[in-house]
């Protein structure tokens, strides 16, 4: 028996590993996009390394820029950029809110709470399998991030939502371009409502629009809030092509408002996003 094990050691280890993976896969398939504990553990161990690498390179770049080039100007510029970034977010949310809010007291309450409701963070990683599925951001549960919190780009366009796993200082964001993402949206012009799903290739599809409903190319889509995850009024994308084939619904392609190549800084809406954006309503 011992001799047999010795001779067949390699084959036994290989088949054990294959068996181990098949068990992992068969556990994972029914879970869908939910992560199992093993995956969470690996993510929790390696995401700080990723964070550290990005931090190191960011710091190295900063040292180079700060000390070898216009140190003061660089610093001021950076501060102004960050301030502008936040102000843009505030401005965009305020505009949306002002359309809805009526009482002055409500507006005051809204403004006082708004500034603390955003968390600016950096993208530190992308999805290895498909870049349009998810990203990793440099804030985690210690910063107050929770599942389903809404993530926007620097102009306030919808990027996605926080999903598991969330480690102490990192979190994963499911992008709206992910094939398994779904956002309830409405057209600003025709008021046609549907579900926006990612195509996994950087764009989205607007689903459940009947051939009789009128929608046109160039129409802007915003979140409707009906999914109870994404607050209403956030700009999501623009319709770029419409096909009416023999199917029950129109085939509508949507270009996202956020630019994938510009995803460096993002904003997370803290707390219940609906409360944050609709405070005072």
């Amino acid at each position: 028996m011992r001799l047999f094990l010795k001779e067949k050691k390699k084959a036994i280890i290989l088949f054990s590993l294959i068996f181990f993976h098949l068990i992992l896969i068969s556990f994972q398939v029914p879970l869908g996009d939910k992560q199992n504990y093993f995956e969470r553990a690996i993510f929790s161990v390696f995401s700080p390394v990723q964070h550290g690498v990005i931090f190191f390179f960011k710091k190295a770049g900063e040292i180079w820029n700060d000390y070898f080039y216009l140190w003061e100007v660089q610093k001021m510029n950076k501060e102004l950029k960050e301030e502008m970034f936040l102000l843009r977010q505030e401005n965009s949310q305020l505009r949306r809110a002002l359309r809805r809010l009526k009482a002055e007291r409500d507006i005051r309450n809204f403004i006082s709470n708004l500034h603390d409701s955003f968390l600016v963070t950096r993208v530190i990683g992308i999805d290895a399998r498909n870049i349009y599925k998810s990203i990793i951001i440099a804030k985690g549960s210690l910063d107050g991030l929770k599942k389903n919190m809404v993530v926007l780009d620097w102009q306030g366009h919808l990027v996605g939502r926080i999903i598991d796993p969330i480690s102490l200082k990192e979190a994963r964001v499911q992008l709206i371009t992910d094939i398994e993402s779904g956002v309830s949206v409405i057209s600003l012009k025709s008021r046609a409502g549907g579900v926006l799903k990612g195509d996994g290739k950087g764009n989205c599809r607007l689903e459940y629009i009947y051939p009789t409903q009128k929608v046109n190319n160039g129409e802007e889509l915003v979140t409707s809030g009906l999914d109870h995850i994404f607050p209403p009024g956030i700009k999501v994308g623009t319709i770029v092509s419409i096909k009416t084939e023999a199917s029950l619904f129109k085939i509508i392609k949507v270009k996202t408002s956020f630019e994938f190549s510009e995803l460096d800084l993002v904003v997370v809406i803290l707390g219940d996003s609906k409360d944050v954006l609709l405070k005072g309503e």
């Binding site: 996009d33 690996i42 990723q50 999805d127 998810s134 499911q174």
Partner: peptide
């Protein structure tokens, strides 16, 4: 498995 844990997909496929 490291690669799998950093992507949204079926955990274990890259590992296998």
């Amino acid at each position: 498995l490291i690669q799998d844990s950093f992507s949204l997909g079926v955990f274990g496929i890259s590992g296998l």
